[in-house]
Design a protein around this nucleic acid. Structure first.
Length: 286
DNA sequence: CACCATGTTCCTTG
DNA sequence: CCAAGGAACATGGT
């Protein structure tokens, strides 16, 4: 469930659930997701440690663990890929089909499940160093965005997915931010006018902030229902109120009327991924 | 059977 | 060396 807002909401919920809990046992059911860490090394490193904190960087979860005694605290890095979920459940409950790693915390198990196994839970920290600024932090300025866009001939939508430019925007919020800014996703990044860069900068932050606010206010079921609910980021959890479905304005709305001008929303493929936009509200030459 | 899916990385091509 | 495009990863839904 993977873009910045979803990870942020997950972290906020999870931090309260795991903080100060101790890992009694580690079970790696899919070694691929912990690579390049080996199962044995992960088990040795984690067993007996306590969760000291949990934060987010881009789409990554950063767990801070402290060993018993005088050992130094260290980091465990999580990434949800396309279909990853992390949550606690009673230790007596059977594990889900695609449980990739489970940590026994006593009466509860911390579950990392991932239907497609594209995610990660590993001691390898490298991924973080290549990330651009946090879009909601002060370091991410309109100036930074302008400079980064100037250097690229790629369509602006494709460029927004570059995690080195700014960390945490994915395929959904790239479309949403451009819609909100009224900029065509096909416009070459370097062709944006200063006013457009400024609007895009504001739109990125607004879209992410609102998504976080939305996720923070509805009841979350991180495991999802048996129907394969996609929770708050996309689709709707069973029994969740309808307003939630209305949150995304263009993503996955191909041929539906634009919420602003009623023109049919268009779907195009860019860099092998779907982009949604309103041809009326988001004009601009390539 | 065909095509689609919230992400990242690696390989090839220019 | 760099930028851009595409395939691969693995599973399931429509």
């Amino acid at each position: 469930m993977p873009e910045l807002p979803e990870v942020e909401v997950l972290v906020r919920h999870l931090v309260a659930a795991v903080k100060h809990k101790t890992i009694c046992a580690v079970a790696v059911r899919r070694p691929k997701v912990i690579a390049p860490t080996s199962p044995r090394r992960l088990e040795r490193a984690l067993t007996g440690t306590t969760f000291e904190g949990l934060s987010r960087r881009g789409k990554y979860l950063v767990f801070k663990l402290r060993p018993r005694g005088k050992g130094e605290a260290f980091l465990l890095i999580g990434h949800l890929g396309m279909t990853g979920r992390m949550y606690l459940q009673p230790a007596s409950q059977p594990l889900p089909k695609h449980a990739a790693v489970t940590l026994n915390l006593g009466r509860q198990n911390f579950i990392y499940e991932d239907q497609r196994y594209f995610g990660r839970l590993t001691l390898a920290v490298d991924g973080l160093s290549r990330l651009g600024p946090e879009p909601l932090a002060k370091e991410f300025t309109a100036k930074h965005l302008a400079a980064a866009l100037q250097r690229s001939t790629q369509p602006v939508k494709v460029k927004l997915l570059d995690q080195e430019l700014v960390a945490g925007i994915g395929n959904i919020y790239a479309s949403e931010a451009l819609f909100r800014a009224g900029i065509s996703p096909r416009l070459a990044a370097r062709r944006l006018q200063p006013g457009q860069v400024r609007r895009l900068w504001r739109a990125i932050r607004a879209v992410l902030r609102e998504a976080i606010a939305c996720g923070s206010t509805i009841p979350l079921n991180f495991r999802g229902g048996k129907t394969g609910d996609r929770l708050f980021y996309y689709g709707r959890a069973t029994g969740a109120p309808d307003y939630y479905v209305e949150r995304l304005r263009v993503y996955d709305r191909a041929s539906q009327p634009c919420v602003v001008c009623a023109a049919p929303i268009r779907r195009v493929i860019q860099a092998a991924r779907s982009t949604f936009y309103c041809p009326q509200c988001q004009q601009g030459r390539k």
